[in-house]
Write a protein that binds this DNA or RNA. Structure first.
Length: 431
RNA sequence: GCCCCGGUAGUAUAGCCCGGACUAGUAUGCGGGCCUGUCGAGCCCGUGACCCGGGUUCAAAUCCCGGCCGGGGCGCCA
């Protein structure tokens, strides 16, 4: 009988000296010096050194070591020993070992990290064994937890909205068509309309779910399927939402700081160390600043990545851009009461990349219809959505956060594909 | 939608411009051997590759055409 794993490698500390443990994981490396043999065992949390020594380790066990290959799955029962010789200060002397699975030579280089991204993505399940990926995705999970905790604290309810939808009339991004029995349906590009509707019942909602965009883009920060963190709150405006986002960013950065040592050892350098008050820069001011830097922009133009990056000179790596011209924003964005050319809207920009976007929304049907018409949309196509506004729609505001971009920017990764387990891009539908 | 670039052992690369000694080099992995404290272990021996199809040529990894696969930039992306 193979015993159950009792400890993760990260839990094997010098304080356990003399204790018996059962470890389970993958053979990272075998260093066979003849009468002493070392096996480095890897699991999700890290590494631990197993020491096999002639005279101390049973001979039968010692003789098994040379047959181990990298990535074989093993379970080891052994005794922990605090050690001056072992670099981590602790090692395990095995008493028994079970080889649960053998591994052939891998198609990706987990050890030297020489494999390029296409090769790694082609064999993604294997690539995910690399210490770097384990650090990225365990951190991603902690970030998600931190975000959820802030939202729950502020009485947001986690919801799920349909990803298969009927309409393609929302405008904007192209939708993927799917067969829905005898009809054509589409994959949702955003939960926008649903989450707004839900503020009329659940008041504050958030959703963490995939979104789909059928755009044939070909860059290192676009995906055709990505995780969107969407939030919407009744009786809130965009300032309230920015306050909330500030708190979220603080929580997220402290989650990263808790992992910083492990990340940096693997060459990942998260650029943010702390988050104070995030500057709220008006669109007008940004335009002026950019003009002063010599950029050819005029009021009404959208800012590109280069310009957003240039603004970090003035405002640091993390800032809000607020009060965009209405022409740059979707139909449901509320205009400023005292300044109808501008809207109660914002983007949160990190290292030049837009990671969150949001606004106060329009909650009056007539106003919404007017905005639709101005953008060439036909209100009658939105009747089921608009009717909700007839039956008690509260004022509301919200945000949409691209989780993979957030992760990429927070960890300083050079390609979004590194921030997704199984990326879907223009040419990649597998694995 | 437009433009540019690439494909050599399991992995990462050299060679390609300027065709011939390329029997395709190197590192790592893998197989074997030596070594009682390695931690990028070391040393010795072995193993393994020119994406596919067509063309030019006495001769193609190398030049040309097509295909397939992949990468990047722009545009698009409420």
């Amino acid at each position: 009988m193979v015993p159950r794993k009792t400890h993760f490698t990260s839990e094997v500390t010098p304080e356990l000296h003399g204790k018996e443990v059962v470890l389970a994981g993958w053979v990272w490396e075998v260093r066979d010096l003849g009468k002493v043999k070392f096996v480095i065992l890897r699991d999700r949390e890290g590494f631990v050194q197993l020491t096999f020594k002639s005279g101390r380790t049973p001979e039968e066990l010692l003789s098994k070591v040379p047959y181990l290959n990298k990535e074989d799955v093993i379970v080891v029962r052994g005794v922990v020993e605090a050690s001056r010789v072992a670099k981590t200060g602790v090692e395990v002397f095995p008493l028994e070992m079970w080889v649960l699975a053998k591994a052939k030579p891998l198609p990706v280089d987990l050890w030297g990290g020489t494999s390029d991204l296409p090769t790694r993505l082609k064999y993604r399940p294997v690539d995910l064994k690399s210490p770097r990926n384990l650090a990225i995705f365990t951190t991603a999970s902690e970030i998600l937890r931190a975000i959820r905790e802030v939202l729950y604290k502020h009485k947001f309810v986690e919801v799920f909205t349909p990803k298969i939808i009927a309409t393609s009339t929302e405008g904007g991004a192209e939708l993927f068509a799917v067969l829905y029995f005898e009809r054509v349906a589409y994959l949702a590009q955003s939960p926008q309309l649903y989450k707004e509707q839900l503020t009329a019942s659940l008041e504050r909602v958030f959703e963490i779910a995939p979104a789909y965009r059928a755009e044939k883009h070909n860059t290192d920060y676009h995906l055709n399927e990505f995780i969107s963190i969407d939030g919407e709150g009744a009786f809130m405006d965009y300032s309230d939402v920015m306050d909330l986002l500030e708190e979220i960013m603080r929580a997220v950065v402290s989650a990263i700081n808790a992992k910083r040592e492990r990340l940096e050892k693997l060459g990942i350098r998260p650029p943010l160390y702390d988050v104070g008050r995030i500057p709220r820069v008006s669109y007008d001011e940004a335009i002026d600043k950019l003009k002063s830097l010599g950029y050819d922009v005029k009021w009404g133009d959208d800012l590109n990545v280069e310009m957003q990056r240039a603004l970090t000179k003035f405002y640091g790596p993390l800032y809000f851009l607020v009060d965009f011209p209405a022409s740059l924003r979707p139909f449901y964005t509320k205009r400023k009461d005292d300044d109808p050319k501008r809207t109660e809207s914002y983007d949160l920009v990190l290292n030049g990349i837009e990671i969150v976007s949001g606004a106060t929304r329009i909650h009056q049907r007539e106003v919404l219809e007017k905005e639709m018409r101005e953008r060439g949309l036909d209100p009658s196509a939105f009747e089921s959505h608009l009717s909700v506004f007839d039956w008690g729609m509260p004022p509301h505001a919200g945000f949409g956060m691209g989780f993979n971009r957030l992760l990429m920017a927070l960890l300083g990764l050079s390609n979004v594909r590194e921030a997704v387990l199984y990326p879907r891009d223009r040419y990649r539908l597998e694995p």
